[in-house]
Computed example of a mutant assay.
Amino acid sequence: MQKWLKKWVVTGLLFGLGMSASLPVKAAKSSQTTQSNVGFSVAAKIPKNQINKKNSFFDLKMKKGQTETLQTVIYNSSNKDIKVQTRINTAYTNTNGTIEYVSPTTNYDPSLKYKISDITKLTGAKTVTVPANGSKTISAKISMPSEQVNGVILGGWYFKRVDDKVTGSVKGAMNMKSQYSYVIGLKYTSGKIPQPNMKLGSVKAGMSNYHRGIIAELRNPTAVMIPNLTTKSTITSKDSDKVVKKATRKGIQMAPNTSYNYPMLLGDTKLQAGKYHLHMVVKNTEHQWTFDKDFTITATSAQKYNKESVDNNGISIWWLIGLGALGMLVIVLLILWLIFFIKKRRQRKD
């Protein structure tokens, strides 16, 4: 009996070697096995106003009020028609400190005046059918603002195969339902490029993936990417001058006009109500910013996050997984023993 057990989503993301930061592009070449599994690929039709002709993503020089039609070709390498869903996403920095082109968000930095998803619109259907062993060209229209934009507007053109696909069929085995996706970077450069700048927003107690900690909001209010940042942070109690937390994070990529909620997790240490001070240095090879900020953890928020945190379990998630696996093994052994017992009993009766 065939069962759908799991949905795999494989995102085809490669990164361009730009001076500013990495942008996603299509897979230029795939192995025969990969092409067979994925079943489709995408390629941007590079226009004349491409800044760097070597880039496979859209790296465009734009002017105020300019309109332009972009085209991407979807190739179907399978022996049947496929459906591909597409959309335009505005880039932002996610909680991992990387630039996100795939998953859209609703929380944008207030400095972001023009979203790429607002000025770039698909001209056809959002879901298209690509014929077997054929191709389909789809279009999107850019409408730049009438006023001068100085800097970079960043995003991605996302493609996801949405028709059902089974990787194989084996009697008695479980089949996997697979979906595959690509994203092509969209980078519009206009006017004068501003100097990078970083700001520190709110600092407060909070949660990240159900782990308690101190969340510092790092902001890039400028229309330029700021790559390869390292943060070094020290949190001290204002009452005792005791160091509560030291944290270092490397490889942070800030999208233009974005906010990054940087989690400094406390692990087994519980949040304590009180007044604190954050000292943070943010830098890369070209720039450095130093921030100092006082903040308060209320008794209410400390109690709330301490109670909700998975850090309270006193046991590692891997221990839980191990115990679960052990429990499954015991159940399987009991079933096998029961089958063996029933079989032996029937043999005796015969």
Rank of each mutant, 00 (worst) to 15 (best):
I142Y: 00
A273M: 11
Q50R: 01
K26S: 10
S20C: 03
L14S: 04
Q66G: 13
Y158K: 11
P263M: 05
K121T: 12
P221D: 06
R345D: 05
Y262T: 04
V84E: 09
P131Q: 12
Y75T: 13
K136A: 12
R249P: 00
I214L: 02
V73D: 10
E286N: 13
Y305I: 08
A302C: 12
L323S: 12
A21I: 10
I339V: 03
Y75V: 03
L14G: 02
M254E: 02
K64C: 12
T298E: 10
D118C: 03
D292K: 06
Y182A: 01
S77F: 08
L278V: 09
T105M: 03
V128M: 14
L112T: 14
F295G: 04
N49V: 01
I116T: 10
Q179D: 08
I193G: 04
V281D: 06
Y108S: 00
G201M: 04
K349H: 14
M225S: 14
A223Q: 11
Q148M: 14
L271K: 05
K275L: 14
V130L: 13
Y108I: 07
K246P: 01
F341V: 14
A299M: 01
L329Q: 07
T120E: 02
K283N: 05
L186S: 00
R87M: 10
M144V: 09
R345F: 04
G65A: 09
A132G: 00
L112E: 15
N150C: 06
P263V: 03
N228C: 11
N197F: 08
L320Q: 04
K80C: 07
T285M: 11
I51D: 02
S178T: 14
A91Y: 06
L14Q: 03
I142M: 06
K238F: 02
R87P: 02
A255S: 15
I331Q: 04
D81W: 07
A299G: 00
Q32E: 15
T189F: 05
L265T: 15
A43D: 13
K113Y: 07
S31L: 12
S169Y: 13
P145V: 00
N133H: 13
N49I: 07
Y180L: 09
K6W: 10
K115A: 08
M280L: 15
E217A: 04
K165Q: 14
T11H: 01
N89T: 15
L278Q: 10
S259L: 09
K177H: 09
A223L: 13
N306E: 11
S237V: 11
V281W: 00
D81P: 01
V203L: 11
G18N: 12
I46F: 02
M280C: 14
D59P: 00
Y210S: 10
Q288I: 05
I88G: 00
Q71F: 10
F15L: 15
G124C: 12
A91P: 06
A273V: 11
K187W: 12
K344D: 11
S178D: 13
L154Q: 12
S202W: 07
P145H: 01
N261A: 13
K343Y: 15
T269G: 02
L329K: 01
D241V: 03
E286W: 04
